Amino acid sequence: MDKPAKQRDAEATKARILAAAKKEFAKNGLAGARVDVIADRAKANKRMIYHYFGNKEDLFQIVLEEAYIDIRTAEQKLELNNIPPREALEKLVRFTWTYYLKNPEFITLVNSENLHKARHLKKSQMIEKVSRRFVDMVARLLERGTAEGAFRPGIDPVQLNITIAAIGYYYLTNRFTGSIVFQRDLMAADALDERLRFNIETILRLVCVEL
């Protein structure tokens, strides 16, 4: 049965507000973001934002949750259990790098939340649930790879997750200063391809029994 027009309009408005808020928070952080700008971009008024999402802090938390849910959902769709362990690990590294490149707002939102010492994530039960599911997925991959003799035993899935994220995250968050310090355009197409190859090789050498 079709949803009533009023309900569809409300959902469309919420979606526009969230999309506008994501851009504003990613660009200016929580402190610098303005609800007026979000309302203007979303073609909504401030009363509607407060009605649907509460205050600016509440809206930021929802945007942050949605950002994490998006990447965690995309990771689950990789279906790593159906791929040989080494190929699955390479696919995860490749996905993480590509996701960061295609979704730069995710990185800036995470940076902003770290400035606030994760006070919004601390209140989120949803983040705990989706993050646990991701860690469990990587743990199963490591167990399967170890059982098949492809991976070294005893690798902590949390440490591996942090390392996979870090080798892409650091490169991209420091791309401007890095381009000056290392005297190369870190965002040139060939440089990005080279970095992905390096990331994959680094993780495989860390985890695999032999290459």
Score class of each variant (00 low, 15 high):
3 K>A: 03
3 K>F: 03
4 P>W: 01
4 P>H: 03
6 K>F: 08
6 K>P: 04
8 R>H: 10
9 D>F: 07
12 A>T: 09
13 T>I: 15
13 T>N: 14
14 K>R: 11
15 A>T: 14
17 I>W: 00
18 L>N: 04
21 A>V: 03
22 K>M: 08
22 K>I: 05
22 K>T: 09
23 K>C: 01
23 K>P: 05
27 K>P: 15
28 N>I: 09
28 N>S: 10
29 G>E: 01
30 L>C: 03
32 G>T: 10
35 V>K: 08
38 I>G: 00
38 I>H: 01
39 A>Q: 00
40 D>E: 12
42 A>Q: 04
46 K>M: 07
49 I>P: 05
52 Y>H: 13
53 F>P: 03
55 N>D: 06
55 N>P: 02
55 N>Y: 08
56 K>L: 02
59 L>C: 08
63 V>T: 08
65 E>H: 05
67 A>D: 03
69 I>H: 12
71 I>K: 08
74 A>N: 06
74 A>P: 02
75 E>T: 09
76 Q>S: 10
80 L>N: 03
80 L>P: 05
82 N>F: 15
82 N>D: 15
85 P>K: 05
86 R>E: 12
87 E>C: 08
87 E>R: 12
94 R>N: 13
94 R>S: 12
95 F>Y: 09
96 T>Y: 03
98 T>A: 06
100 Y>F: 15
101 L>N: 12
101 L>A: 01
104 P>Q: 01
104 P>H: 02
106 F>L: 08
106 F>D: 03
107 I>R: 05
108 T>K: 10
109 L>F: 06
110 V>I: 06
115 L>K: 09
115 L>V: 03
118 A>R: 14
123 K>L: 08
124 S>N: 07
124 S>T: 01
125 Q>C: 14
126 M>H: 11
127 I>A: 14
128 E>M: 14
129 K>I: 14
129 K>F: 13
130 V>F: 02
133 R>E: 10
134 F>E: 15
135 V>T: 08
135 V>K: 07
136 D>G: 12
136 D>E: 14
137 M>S: 06
139 A>R: 06
140 R>D: 15
141 L>H: 09
142 L>A: 03
142 L>I: 00
144 R>E: 07
144 R>Y: 00
144 R>L: 03
145 G>P: 13
147 A>F: 12
147 A>H: 07
147 A>V: 13
147 A>K: 13
150 A>M: 14
153 P>Y: 07
155 I>F: 01
156 D>E: 06
156 D>S: 11
159 Q>Y: 12
159 Q>A: 14
161 N>C: 13
162 I>E: 06
162 I>L: 04
164 I>H: 05
164 I>A: 04
166 A>Q: 09
169 Y>A: 09
169 Y>I: 11
170 Y>F: 15
171 Y>W: 05
171 Y>N: 01
171 Y>T: 02
172 L>T: 07
172 L>W: 05
175 R>H: 10
175 R>A: 07
177 T>M: 11
185 D>G: 07
185 D>K: 07
186 L>P: 02
188 A>I: 01
189 A>E: 15
190 D>A: 11
193 D>L: 15
200 I>P: 02
203 I>K: 02
205 R>M: 10
207 V>G: 00
208 C>N: 00
208 C>S: 05
209 V>Q: 08
210 E>P: 05
210 E>V: 09
211 L>V: 14
